[in-house]
Design a protein around this nucleic acid. Sequence first.
DNA 1: TATATTTTTATGTATATACATTAAATTCAA
DNA 2: TTGAATTTAATGTATATACATAAAAATATA
Lengths: 150, 150
Amino acid sequence: MGKLEEAIQQKDFIDPYHKAVVNLLFTHSYVVGYQNALLKPYDLSPEQYNVLRILRGQNGNPTTVSSIQERMLNKMSNASRLVEKLKAKGLVLREECPTDRRQVDVMISAEGLKLLEKLETRIQDSNKYYIKLSESEVRNLNMLLDKLRG
Amino acid sequence: MGKLEEAIQQKDFIDPYHKAVVNLLFTHSYVVGYQNALLKPYDLSPEQYNVLRILRGQNGNPTTVSSIQERMLNKMSNASRLVEKLKAKGLVLREECPTDRRQVDVMISAEGLKLLEKLETRIQDSNKYYIKLSESEVRNLNMLLDKLRG
DNA sequence: TATATTTTTATGTATATACATTAAATTCAA
DNA sequence: TTGAATTTAATGTATATACATAAAAATATA
């Protein structure tokens, strides 16, 4: 795969910033491709997997839909419908919040936890396989992405 | 925005590789948000804009749909329908390839070129505004993304 | 307290994506 | 040279995304 210019046969970028935008979009597609392939047998999308992880991070405390939305990777996505899908698969529990009836309490189910556990090592192996960077380079990349967003 | 852990209130990543995946998805959403906002008044999606740039890069030579597909940022997207949209807006020309009737020759139109030109400086300014990295950091990021894909 | 404003979730809708399938044209091979 | 295999583009379909709007409940204000 290698250099962006060769991968997409484009070389007339406005400047390195524009190239970075294209590079991010292209690398995103590369990563999501592997994620989809791994998660598809389990009938999960990458964002659904992420929401399950968000819920597990609550250590048993219920979370509202808006709180999930804030933490989602795709800000404009739709937490409500996503939770609905996960509930239909039995991976989360959803019930009216007793203190505020507008809100909805969402929790990961035992089945959801089991699925996450089953996926953990597969994902770890997969990530290391297709991310062709050393650990220090990955840390550097994380630092730059954090800084990029300011 | 800053550090990923704070931005999405998640800190239990499997390892730096997994964090990089999440960071890429999140940063992608950040970037695409700005791209959408900029392009929306012109009724273009980021990938449509990219295809126009691919076509301009051909310097007047027609390109086939499969060739566009290969160069697109989103490998699984649908070049055929995207070209159809751009044609409906008068931004590209499309006609049967004379030497191979399966193929379709696509070219950017004068109107398409004019639109790209109009967008150029806006995009350049916008990119520099929301990518909060120095030029050397951006180059470093591009290098790491290229290397990531191997 | 009654009404307006805000918050929270759900829904509507157009577009985009992922992926399978179809249809037509070309190339390959018996 | 005829039929099989391949290539190319288009279409079908389910899901996801972007964004507007609606509906219900809570809070603020007159």
